[in-house]
Design a protein around this nucleic acid. Structure first.
Length: 214
DNA sequence: CGTGTGATGTCT
DNA sequence: GACATCACACGG
């Protein structure tokens, strides 16, 4: 098992390059006696004042959104619809602020414990792999499964219990299998043309992404 | 398979 | 009042 950890310099490049390079990387959640690993298969880019869908669209940081304006590699976690959390990683955009939403992943280690975190089963021993493909297929699910909450927001990736390992980078090994689409769940009334920007990056034909057809 | 809706916290 | 969501209910 690869245990090398990616340095935060990884994030100090244009946010779209970083987003593509995240595909295939391994997200690691470590606690005592509990390591969970997941391979990233779907991300979305959110920029700054040019991007009506971004939490940084005002151009000014707030108590919640400041990690989107801070050092590359910061963790930004926010609560959505009162009950779910979304994990983002800070990287710089042309307009300055930015963060990459981690939307979906494939379980690599600790799938049973992830399913317990999701509330799908009571104990990890009861895990049945047939429930796999939806285990991490959305940003809320991913945070439930990896026990990621707003208390982690503002930490540097790698400093605490969440880190990134090299994994198998899709954009280097097989560039043709990186697809891009418009982002998911945006409100057309408030987001305007940014609704159509192809800033969602996925591993083509992966069964682990959200919004799969068939 | 599809669409509709309720749960719920924090922001503007 | 909006929201970068999810699980469940229901109809075909």
């Amino acid at each position: 098992m690869m245990t090398e950890v990616i340095d935060t310099a990884f994030f100090d490049r244009d946010i779209h390059r970083v987003a593509r390079d995240l595909l295939g990387r391994t997200l690691v959640r470590r606690r005592s006696d509990d390591t969970r690993r997941a391979r990233i298969v779907e991300v979305e880019v959110y920029e700054g004042q040019n991007d009506a869908a971004s939490h940084a669209r005002s151009g000014e940081p707030t108590d919640r959104t400041w990690p989107m304006f801070d050092r590359p590699g910061r963790i930004y976690v926010y609560t959505i619809y009162g009950m779910y959390h979304c994990l983002n990683l800070r990287a710089p955009s042309q307009s300055g602020p930015g963060a990459i939403l981690i939307r979906a992943a494939a379980p690599v280690e600790g799938a049973g414990r992830m399913a317990v975190g999701r509330g799908l089963i009571a104990t990890a021993e009861r895990y049945d792999a047939t429930m796999d493909s939806d285990l991490l297929s959305g940003p809320g699910k991913l945070c439930q499964a990896l026990d990621i909450g707003p208390e982690m927001s503002g930490e540097m990736l790698g400093d605490g219990m969440l880190a990134l390992e090299p994994g198998e980078p899709v954009c280097q090994n097989d560039p043709d299998s990186v697809d891009s689409t418009p982002r998911i769940g945006l409100n057309p009334d408030t987001c305007g043309e940014s609704c159509r920007w192809p800033w969602r990056y996925i591993v083509a034909d992966s069964p682990w992404t959200s919004c799969r057809a068939g």
